[in-house]
Amino acid sequence: MNLKLGLFLLITLRTIPLFASAPDTVRLYYKIAEFELSACNQKKLDSLCKSFKGVDNLHITGFADYLGTGPDNAVLSQKRAEIVAAYIKSHINLVVAADWKAVEMSTAKKGPLGDPFNRRVDIVINKIVHTKVVAQPQLPPPQFTDKIAHLSNIEVGGSLALEELTFQSARHFLNPECEANLKILLSYLKQHDNIRFEIQGHICCDNGPDGMDIDSRDYKLSVNRAKFIYDYFVKNGIDAKRMTYKGLASTKPKVYPELTDHDKYLNRRVELLITGK
C-alpha cells in the first residue's frame, strides 16, 4: 500500500458516518384487568408520537402480573400490546412490532392487589444515530483529572457525580468516549487506597423501579451499570473490600426535566459515595 492510499483510507475511516441502533424505553401502566388506553396513557402516546424524529422502529410488549389465570393474562397482555400498536400506527407511519406472548411476571410478594409495575406495556424505541470511527481515542479533558483530585477531600457521606462516565442507551456498557476517563479514575483510586466508596448507577427517563438492560435481558439496568464499574475495578486491582455497588434507577436525575437527548445522556451515569477513609 503506497503512502497516498494509506492516507486516503485513514481520512475516510475518520469521517464516514456509521449507523447504530440506540433504544430507549417508554412505559404505560394499567389498572387491574384494564387493557384500553386511559386518558393519561393516551396523552403520553400523543406526546410520544410527536417526538418520533429519527426513529427507525418500535417494539411493543404487553405484560400482566400474577392476578388471574395464565390464559387470562395471555389475552390481557395481547390486548394491551395490540391496542397501543394500533394507536401509534394510526398517528404515524412507522414500523411497529407488537409482542403479546403473555409475560406473566413473577414476584416474591403476592397479594390481592397484584403488582402494579408488571401491569404495563413497554415501548422500545430504536433510533438511528450517527457515530464515527476514530483511528485513535480522544484524550480526556484535563478538567476530569482536576475534578477527581478532590475525591480525597470529600467527607464520609459525601458523593461525586461522574457525568464523564456515561453509558450507552439501555445498556450497561460505557460510551466509548468515556473509557479513558475510567482509566484515570482507576489510577487515582490505586494511589489513594484509603478511600472506601459505593458505586451508584443511574438511568435516564421515568422507568419505574429500574430500566431494562438489553444485554442481560433483565430489569436491573442501573444495578448492572454500577456493577460494570465495580467489576472493572476488581479486575484491575482495586480491593473489593473497599467498595460496594447499588442501582438508584431514575430516582436522582442529574438533569430534570429531560428535555433533550443530551439531558438523557447526562443521566445515564454513575456517582461515587464516600463510605469511609
Rank of each mutant, 00 (worst) to 15 (best):
K31Q: 11
P176A: 11
N207F: 12
T107N: 01
V75N: 09
L174P: 02
I195Q: 03
V134E: 00
S216P: 05
N41W: 15
N2L: 04
S21M: 15
G211E: 02
E155Y: 14
G201D: 09
Q168I: 02
V121W: 03
D146Q: 13
F197D: 07
N93I: 13
T69W: 05
R269N: 03
K183G: 04
V103C: 10
D218Q: 05
G237C: 04
N175F: 06
P176W: 02
H262F: 15
H91C: 01
K246W: 12
Q143I: 13
Y256G: 00
A240R: 04
S77M: 01
S159N: 08
P137Y: 06
N41H: 06
P137C: 02
E198G: 08
R269D: 00
P140G: 10
I154G: 03
E179K: 10
N2M: 03
Y87S: 08
G62L: 05
P23I: 06
K183E: 10
P140D: 01
D72E: 03
N73W: 04
D218Y: 12
V75A: 08
L7Y: 07
G237T: 03
R119W: 02
N181Y: 00
V96N: 08
D99C: 08
P142Q: 10
P209R: 11
T145H: 13
L186G: 01
A22Q: 09
L3V: 14
L7H: 00
I16T: 10
S159K: 09
A240W: 00
I195T: 00
E258R: 04
P140L: 04
K53L: 15
H202W: 09
T15Y: 09
Q78S: 14
F35L: 11
V124P: 13
L94G: 10
T166Y: 01
S106E: 09
N181F: 00
E164F: 15
G247Q: 02
L9F: 08
I274C: 03
L151R: 03
D206E: 07
G211H: 06
T166E: 08
M243E: 10
S222Y: 03
L266T: 04
L273K: 12
T275W: 15
D206Y: 10
A74V: 03
E179W: 02
F19G: 02
P112I: 08
N236I: 10
Q136E: 13
L3M: 10
K44C: 05
P253I: 06
N2F: 05
F167E: 01
S51G: 15
K79W: 11
L185F: 01
P116W: 04
F35N: 14
A161K: 13
S38F: 06
L165N: 06
A97L: 13
M243L: 08
K53V: 15
D239S: 06
L113V: 05
N181L: 06
A33W: 15
H130D: 13
I238P: 05
K109F: 15
L248H: 00
H192F: 08
M212R: 09
V133L: 03
H202L: 07
E155I: 09
K252F: 00
Y230Q: 07
T61V: 14
K53P: 15
L76V: 06
V26K: 09
F63E: 07
R268F: 00
T12G: 11
S21E: 13
L18S: 14
P112K: 09
L165T: 05
Y245I: 04
Y232I: 12
A149I: 07
F19P: 02
R269C: 02
L221H: 09
K227Q: 08
R225P: 09
R217W: 11
